[in-house]
Amino acid sequence: MTPQQVTLVQDSFAKVRPIADTAADLFYGRLFEIAPGVRAMFPEDMREQKKKLMAMLGLAVTNLHKPDTVVPALQTLGRQHVAFGTQAAHYAPVGEALLWTLEQGLGPDFTPEVREAWTETYGLVARVMQDAAADMRA
């Protein structure tokens, strides 16, 4: 990621923070719409899960420029997701739901450059998590 992409992601996420509850609702609503099979992997009461989502996004976004901080946290998350039954194929709809949520939440501020920066960010996050999960399974 370029320094400009890091700034775009961080600045755009700062606009999402005030609507974190709505963003989490949008995200999970969209995820369960496009990948209904994953719903069973989550608790009935999603309040804590939504908080965890926004906290992890916040950690990742805040520390994008600090790989020594963000990579171990993402590796731990990737290993934890193995126990939940997460498979490599689940990462694509999560990314799609994330981008859709950001588009809804940011409106016209979700420019093509912001989309590209978030796409790159999610790709990095997903790769780190998937690599850690694969190492754990091996």
Rank of each mutant, 00 (worst) to 15 (best):
R30K: 15
E113S: 15
Q87W: 01
H90D: 12
E48L: 15
D45P: 06
R47Y: 12
L59H: 13
W100Q: 05
T62G: 10
L53I: 09
L99D: 10
L124A: 14
Q80L: 14
A92L: 13
E103G: 14
Q80N: 09
L57T: 05
F110R: 06
L124E: 14
G85Q: 06
R115T: 14
R30S: 07
Y28L: 03
F84N: 11
E96I: 13
R30L: 15
L102F: 06
M41T: 04
R79H: 00
V94K: 00
E116V: 11
F42P: 00
A35C: 12
E113P: 06
L106K: 04
E44Q: 11
Y122V: 03
Q87V: 08
D68E: 15
A83V: 08
V94N: 06
Y28E: 02
K51I: 09
V114Y: 01
T101F: 05
P72C: 02
A88R: 07
V38T: 15
K66P: 10
T86E: 08
R115F: 14
M41E: 10
E44K: 05
A55M: 12
V70E: 15
M56G: 14
N63S: 06
K52Q: 13
L64N: 07
H65G: 15
M46W: 14
E44M: 09
V82F: 02
M46L: 14
L124W: 12
E103R: 08
W100A: 07
R115C: 13
A35W: 06
V94Y: 01
L98S: 13
G29P: 03
D68F: 03
A97C: 14
H65Y: 09
K52P: 12
R47G: 02
P43W: 06
W118G: 07
R30W: 08
G95W: 00
H65Q: 13
P93H: 01
T119L: 11
A89Y: 10
H81G: 03
G85L: 06
K52N: 12
G58F: 00
L31M: 11
Q49P: 07
G58W: 00
P36C: 04
P67R: 01
A73K: 01
Q87E: 07
R115D: 14
E116M: 13
R47H: 13
Y122I: 07
L124Y: 10
L102A: 02
L124D: 12
Q87N: 10
T111S: 10
G107R: 02
A55K: 11
A40E: 11
A40R: 12
M54S: 02
F84R: 07
P112A: 11
T86G: 06
L53Y: 08
L106H: 00
V71T: 15
D68P: 04
F32L: 00
E103Y: 06
V71I: 15
L102M: 14
L53P: 12
A117P: 02
E44Y: 10
T69E: 13
Q104Y: 05
G95H: 04
A35N: 05
P43I: 04
Q75Y: 08
P112S: 10
K52W: 06
L124I: 10
G37W: 02
H65F: 11
T101W: 09
F32A: 00
A97G: 11
D68L: 03
T101G: 04
